[in-house]
Write a protein that binds this DNA or RNA. Structure first.
Length: 239
DNA sequence: ATCCCGAGGG
DNA sequence: CCCTCTGGAT
């Protein structure tokens, strides 16, 4: 409720969340780099094709669950032709332990067919081409371009969207807005690996539930700590 | 805005 | 039980 009067001197009922300064952004990213010296994707893949399929399968699923399913899937279908030959039903059987499996099975087979028909069986190094494939949106295209082709893209997933807004690193109401903020604010030479640093940070420290703020290098500038009155120390281990 | 959709954690 | 996991298409 807004029944209680607020001082007329304050323009808004709640102060807007402060975005990190450029110096704070740089310090945060550099400390994430130091904390994750050999950061890489935790998906198991062997080439561009198996990477693309793994990323499509990873929607609303953990990397661990995707890896469990792709062992058998890639043994049967290591390339687009084999994937088409395997067919939607058998692909589905391999990935049934992953959420959204019906849609994903259909997309993976259709996507493989289109790689054969339109791109000579290869994964195109082209954003528009990638996003034209079934089951591939901006986030997936950004991941493939970053990992397979070495582009300085920033894929904004659930983790990075949360970190951007929660901490003030890159506030934005849509994934696209957060992406643009990150590209603008993170030094160019750190942008590509920063994707992995942020993912790991979101997965293990700045978690959706019960974030472990005492392990976070951005504790000082982070806006979440102010909102939630979080302490910069680990909870006492019970005796 | 809603649907797709299973496993794991708290 | 509820929430979350590297979303995309309608």
């Amino acid at each position: 409720m807004t029944a209680t009067a607020r001082p007329t001197s304050r323009p808004s009922p709640r102060p807007a969340r402060r975005a990190m300064t450029r110096a704070e952004v740089r310090a945060f990213i550099e400390q994430l780099a130091a904390a994750n010296p050999d950061a890489r994707s935790e998906l198991n893949f062997v080439d561009d094709f198996t990477l693309l399929v793994s990323v499509v399968l990873s929607a609303q699923a953990t990397d661990a669950s995707v890896n469990r399913a792709t062992v058998g899937l890639f043994a049967d279908a290591p390339d687009p032709a084999a994937m088409v030959a395997l067919g939607e039903e058998k692909v589905g059987a391999h990935i049934r332990s992953i959420g959204l499996w019906r849609t994903k099975a259909r997309n993976v087979v259709a996507l493989s067919q289109q790689l054969l028909d339109r791109f000579g069986g290869k994964v195109p190094h082209d954003r528009a081409a990638l996003e034209s494939l079934p089951g591939v949106g901006r986030k997936t295209a950004n991941v493939v371009m970053n990992i397979a082709f070495g582009d300085s893209t920033m894929a904004v997933d659930t983790h990075i969207f949360r970190i951007g807004n929660r901490t003030g690193l890159a506030p934005g109401t849509t994934p696209r807005a957060v992406e643009e903020q990150l590209v603008r604010r993170i030094p160019a030479d750190m942008l590509r690996p920063a994707h992995h640093w942020l993912i790991l940070h979101g997965r293990y420290v700045c978690k959706a539930r019960k974030p472990e703020c005492w392990r976070c290098p951005a504790f000082e500038p982070c806006q979440y700590r102010l909102k939630e009155d979080i302490r910069n120390e680990a909870p006492a281990t019970k005796a």
